[in-house]
């Protein structure tokens, strides 16, 4: 028995039929085809699969797809506008804030949730915002610095 759900994904309307109990991570990757979302633990502990649901960072692996009907979901695939990169993406590149790249989509979304809400974060704000996201190779310092850089760049471009 499958259930129809509808939501907005990076600004576009999406519809899918999902199994009862299906999680949002598998729904996005296997049914909708958004492969920018990565699975790391499938048990809500590593933050790799972080997406924004109505602006709030959520772990898509432990979010029931059916509960997302009517929501607006953002993933890393929607960060850039055409060929124009989001300031976070530029800062991650320049600060060497990605090594294997696997935690990067989740990191970017956790950081975006922070900057959307708080454009001038302190270092401590950044640390708290990404505290649910595990990185095993880059190290957190370049990531923290990249997020702070992106915030500064964002502020400058708005001024």
């Amino acid at each position: 028995m499958k259930t129809p759900i509808q939501f907005r994904l990076n600004g576009e309307d999406v519809a899918a039929f999902v199994e009862g109990g299906a999680n949002l991570l598998d729904t996005l990757r296997e049914i909708v085809g958004d492969l920018s979302v990565k699975g790391g633990c499938w048990q809500g502990t590593c933050g790799t699969c972080t997406v924004l649901i109505d602006g709030v960072p959520r772990l898509s692996c432990i979010t029931l797809a059916e509960t997302c009907s009517g929501s607006s979901i953002e993933t890393a695939a929607g960060l850039r506008r055409g060929s124009e990169l989001h300031p976070l993406q530029i800062a991650f590149m320049e600060r060497f804030a990605a090594q294997c790249g696997y935690c990067t989509p989740g990191m970017l979304m956790a950081a975006k949730a922070l900057l959307d809400k708080n454009p001038n974060p302190t270092r401590q704000d950044v640390i708290e915002a990404i505290s649910g996201n595990i990185c095993r190779c880059t190290g957190y310092e370049p990531i923290i610095n990249a997020v702070l850089d992106a915030a500064r760049e964002h502020a400058r471009s708005r001024a």
């Binding site: 492969l35 990565k38 890393a76 695939a77 960060l79 696997y102």
Partner: peptide, 13 residues
């Protein structure tokens, strides 16, 4: 060379 793929989440694992 793979950095752009990583930050745009298009690197293919």
């Amino acid at each position: 060379q793979d950095m752009l793929g990583h930050v745009t989440a298009t690197s293919r694992y």
